[in-house]
Amino acid sequence: MTNPQRILLVDDDPAVRSSLAFALELEDFQVETFETGELLAERGLLPDDACLVLDYKLPGLDGLSLLRQLRANGARLPAVLITSNPPERLRRATVAAGAALIEKPLLCDALSRSIRSLIDTAHG
């Protein structure tokens, strides 16, 4: 890629946030990280060319609630919700919010493949 695709990554665990950002940067993504959903919500205008990667289990505003809030405010960015052991209701709610769901632990390149697919669909 000549112009790296942007990722807005929200995860409260510093080790996970750092390792995900590192792995995505190796895949030629430009990654902006946030510790909480509230910090991303306060960012203001979101770039049109970004993809959201949101941990579901966050302190305060969880990833799905954050996505719903961003959608209500007009954000139509592709989005991936990451979590472990999601119940069926969360799977359905994620699809209804227009996002993909990736289960932790993240295996191989499942996250980057999902992001690229979502970006291609959103911009194709």
Rank of each mutant, 00 (worst) to 15 (best):
R6K: 15
A99Y: 11
F29D: 06
R91S: 08
D28K: 11
L40G: 02
T83W: 02
R89S: 14
M1L: 09
Y56H: 15
V53R: 04
T94P: 10
C108P: 01
L45C: 05
S112Q: 11
A93Q: 13
K57D: 12
I7T: 04
S84M: 08
A23I: 08
K104C: 03
F34S: 02
A75I: 04
P14A: 09
P59C: 10
Q69Y: 08
D49P: 05
E103H: 03
R92H: 13
N73D: 14
L54P: 10
A75P: 12
L67K: 09
E35T: 12
A96T: 00
R76A: 15
I82F: 03
L106T: 06
A93V: 04
A110E: 15
L77T: 08
P4F: 05
L77S: 08
C51W: 02
N85K: 11
A21V: 01
V95E: 15
L81Y: 07
E25M: 07
L54R: 02
P14H: 06
R92G: 08
V80K: 04
D55F: 06
L20K: 02
R113N: 10
I102Q: 01
K104M: 00
A79D: 07
E27Q: 09
A72K: 14
R17N: 14
Q30T: 06
R113L: 14
F22A: 13
L8W: 05
F29Q: 07
D62P: 10
A97D: 08
P105H: 05
L8R: 05
V53K: 07
L81V: 15
L39K: 14
E25I: 01
A23L: 13
A100C: 09
C51R: 02
I7H: 03
I7K: 00
G37K: 13
G37H: 11
L61G: 00
F29M: 03
G37E: 04
R113M: 12
T94W: 03
V53A: 07
M1N: 08
L24T: 01
L61Y: 01
R71V: 06
A122E: 00
R17M: 10
